[in-house]
Amino acid sequence: MIKVENLFYSYTKDSKYAVDDVNFEVAKGEAFGFLGPSGAGKSTTQGILTGLLPMQDGLAEVAGYNMKNPSRKMFNKLGVSFEQSNVYGKLTALENLEFYRKLFDVETIEPNVLLEIVGLSHVANKKASTFSKGMKHRLTFARSMLNKPELWFLDEPTTGLDPAIANQIKDVIKEKSKEGSTIFLTTHNMFIADELCDRVGFIIDGVLKLIDSPRNLKLKYGQKLVDIEYKDGNEIKKDSFSLIKEEERLKLNHIINNYEIELMHTKEATLEEIFIKVTGRGLV
């Protein structure tokens, strides 16, 4: 569905690349997560793939169209949700969707149904300019689903939403993914990426460092740890051991055999910890 080869992009048209020699492919029906800290080049990549930014160097194929010279028809297959919500403030939520659906040549979903899904039914007839940030963001998200996109670009769909609503949005994406939509998801939220994505890519400073499935990454980089609290005389002691290293396993064994255990739990590395480990950088 997406094929990117040696993609470069520079806003200043010099060698300061916001996207620096990026290569990846997204298969039909796959959910691909694009992860990276702020300013990494995630939105820039999405911008190129959705035709909002011009192709500078490299090759990009989206839904069968070469992005050097895409046809407007391509957009019948695409859905795009933006990191910054962009709806007509002067129009109501319903008017926004009603207008937008008429721009497509393919069958569209009833706007009211979409408003229901994102929890905006009660404000369907209110001007979008009166909406909170999160409400506008949900309207932008809802709009991207209008044409039942085969390929769905989501730039931080859950950022700025309260956890309950973020969870709802995540479920919507999950369902569409099950129905066979291809998803290109940009996010800072590792839990959502972990849950939704078949594969994730780590990008930093425009460079794509690594692509793999969350499961493989955990197997490869996540060492299983055991946190333990035990009584040594009157003193409570805390420690942490890796289950992979022989020497630490023996130590743990020794403690279990000789002391009274207060608390013990195993911990899996999160995608976020792996990200930090791989890239040496945090996600924010």
Binding site: L52, R72, M74, F75, F104, R143
Partner: peptide, 14 residues
């Protein structure tokens, strides 16, 4: 400013 031009640009409209 509103960004709606970008939303328009990702539709089949010309």
């Amino acid at each position: 400013e509103e960004g709606t031009i970008r939303a328009f640009a990702v539709t089949p409209a010309k």
